[in-house]
């Protein structure tokens, strides 16, 4: 929020998010809630991939662990409000475990290791029917209530998701502005230099995974009651790849990147349905074009405009200086 203009835009966006459900039907509110859930998940992935530079392709596994934790606990009669923090905690712990390979390998090898983890987690969800309902999934997952306020309605549940997302976004914002945040980016930009400057590379790498995973866990915990049903399908390797796509398209390492990225991944295909049979083809092509146009993601637009403006100003200044010099020489 560098300028008052940006602040105003942010406030307007927040107001729109609060007001929007009242102008939408059930399906519109549902789509919006779906988007918010993916914003939470990709905020976590943005920390791992965008800020800390770890190539993780297993984020959907954490998302699934969160969803199953809540679903299983609620089916066992426990409260959603107990399930939510437990989901986050469990994902935090698994994030640390998955982070360990990252201490030894990087880039494609890390992508491979995280893909492998995702495959294993997915198989577990599908095979262990006694716990997860296997391929048939878990149905009739109730939506929670708090202090007598029920979040069963579609708008009410949306506001719950939005509130959780807002809290998590604020936490992440604080974290990124703290010395921890600086350590994460140092890790991404130059791990060797970071190490020599005294950053605990081991610890921060693991933390980047663990915190990212915890966000996915919370998103999963919101996802299960949103659908009121879960099966292993949305937690596959393919889903992880889509989340990675969302982060990169939105702008990795930009705070608001996941909001735009998740919109591209969740809302854009729905919006493209007017293209009928062709809508997924158009979606794929749009992603390719978007990357070619904005390789650093959608949120690189403001920076790019600024750079262009500065370049223009600089060249104008140069031209003026040259003219002065010319004039002086004559």
């Amino acid at each position: 929020m560098r300028t008052p203009l940006a602040l105003a835009a942010g406030l307007a966006a927040a107001a729109a998010l609060v007001a929007l459900p009242h102008f939408l039907g059930r399906s519109g509110v549902y789509l919006l809630s779906y988007w918010v859930v993916f914003v939470v998940a990709t905020m976590g992935l943005n920390l791992t991939v965008g800020y800390a530079g770890q190539k993780s392709l297993g984020h959907a596994a954490f998302f699934g662990i969160g969803a199953y934790t809540v679903a299983i606990l609620m089916k066992a009669g426990l409260s959603f409000w107990l399930g939510l923090p437990l989901a986050a905690l469990l994902c935090f712990a698994s994030g640390i475990v998955v982070g360990f390979p990252a201490l030894r390998v990087q880039a494609i090898y890390l992508a491979f290791a995280t893909l492998g983890f995702n495959t294993a987690a997915w198989l577990f969800m599908r095979n262990e029917e006694w716990l997860t309902g296997g391929t048939f999934g878990i149905k009739d997952i109730a939506r929670p209530s708090l202090f007598g306020v029920s979040f069963d309605g579609h708008r009410a549940y949306y506001y719950l998701c939005l509130a959780v997302a807002a809290i998590l976004a604020a936490l992440l914002y604080g974290l990124l502005r703290s010395p921890w945040g600086k350590a994460f980016t140092a890790l991404r930009d130059n791990p060797i230099r970071a190490e020599s400057l005294g950053v605990d590379v081991r610890g921060y790498t693991l933390l980047a995974f663990a915190i990212g995973a915890a966000y996915a866990g919370v998103a999963g915990a919101l996802f299960a009651p949103l659908l009121e049903f879960i099966d292993p399908a949305p937690f596959s390797v393919g889903a992880s790849i889509m989340m990675y796509l969302m982060v990169v398209v939105g702008g990795p390492g930009y705070f608001f990147g996941p909001m735009l990225g998740a919109a591209v991944g969740v809302v854009l295909p729905e919006w493209l349905r007017f293209a009928q049979d062709w809508y997924l083809f158009v979606f794929g092509a749009a992603v390719v074009l978007l990357m070619i146009w904005l390789p650093d993601g959608l949120l690189s637009i403001p920076g790019r405009l600024r750079a262009r403006r500065e370049a223009r100003a600089a060249s104008a200044a140069r031209a003026a200086a040259a003219a002065r010099l010319d004039g002086g020489g004559r």
Partner: peptide, 21 residues
């Protein structure tokens, strides 16, 4: 790498769904 990876992911979605039609 990130931009190329995502562009080729988009490409694969487009190719798969183009042929599907």
């Amino acid at each position: 790498m990130m931009a190329i990876v995502v562009a080729t992911i988009g490409l694969s979605i487009a190719m798969r769904n183009g042929v599907r039609i």
